[in-house]
Amino acid sequence: MPNGVLILAEAEGGEIVTVTKELIGAAQRLGAGPVSAMLLGSGVEAAAGKITGAEKVYVVDDPALAQYTNDAYTQAAAAVAQKADPAIVLMGQTNIGRDLAPALAFKLGTAVAMDTIALEMKDGGLHTTRPAYGGNARAVNGFSTTPAIATVRPKSQDPVEGGSAGAVEKVAFDASGVRTKVTARTAATSEGVRLEDADVVIAGGRGLGGPEGFAKVEELAKLLNGAVGASRAVADLGWRPVSEQVGLTGKVVSPTLYVAVAISGASQHMAGCSGSKNIVAINKDADANIFKAARFGIVGDFATVLPALVEAIKKVKAEG
C-alpha cells in the first residue's frame, strides 16, 4: 500500500539547496504520512546527512549520476520510488525536476502536475494548483493514479525549520541503459546577481525610450542588490540582452520585490513576473495593466521619477 511523501532532494557544492527545504516543509504540512527524501548524484553521501525533517533519506551515489541526464536520473529515481512506495512524490520545478518528473511519472504509470504553487490533501488524495495560460488562469488538478507526482515552484512553500537528520539508506541502480551523454558544459556568464535567483528585480520596458534609459534602472538595481530585467520588446529591439528578458518566452522570476518601470504589463510579460511577492509599477499611463497586479505604484514619467526614487531610497536607507 503506497504511503507517505517522497521528495527529490538536490545538493549544490555539497550543500542542500533551499527548494529541498521547501519541499520537506510542504510534505510535512500535507500530513500524508512519513516524509522521505531521495538524493541522486555522485559523491553526495555527505550531503545526504545534512537533510533534515525527513525520516529516511534514500541515496543513489553513482558516477553515472555525476551529471544530470534524463536517462540516468529517471532510472535512479524509479529505483528509489519502487523501494519507498510513496503515495506522493514532490520535486522542485528546477533544471532537474522539470525534466525528470514527466519521465518518472511515465515509468511509474502515473501522472505529474508541473510547476504547482499550492498543494492540498482532500478525500485522501493530493490536489494541486498551478498557473496556466501564462499565469492568466489557475488549474486545479487531481490524480487518478498513484503515486501522485508534482513539481513545486521554488519560493512557493515555506521551508522546513530544524528537525533531525534522517536515516540514510543506499539504493543501487543499473546505469547500463543510459543512452544520452553530456559532452560539454559552459557556465553562463552573468554580472552581478542572477536574474532567477534575485530577491529584487528592476525591469524596464519600451517606455524607457532607448538603451540609455536603463542607466537609472541599473543604478536602482545596484542600490538594492537586485538584477536587471527587460520586457520582450526591449530584448527584441536589442536594447538589452535576451538573457534579461522576463516573460513567457524569457525568464520566469518570483522575487520578493519586482519593480516594473515603463512596462505596460502585457500577458506575455506578466507570465514571467506574476509570481513576484510585491510588484511596484512606475508608468505614466494610469490605465496600464501592470497597475492591476501591483501593490505600490507611481503614475509618472520614469525620467523624473526614477532619479528621484534612487535618491529617496538612498536617504531612507541612510536613516537606518
Partner: peptide
C-alpha cells in the same frame, strides 16, 4: 486521463494598487 482537471479559474488579484 490520469491527471484530472478539477477546476480552471482566473485568479482574483487581491492587491489593490496603492498609488503614491
Amino acid at each position: 486521463p490520469k491527471l484530472t482537471l478539477e477546476a480552471l479559474y482566473v485568479p482574483v488579484v487581491d492587491t489593490k494598487v496603492e498609488l503614491m
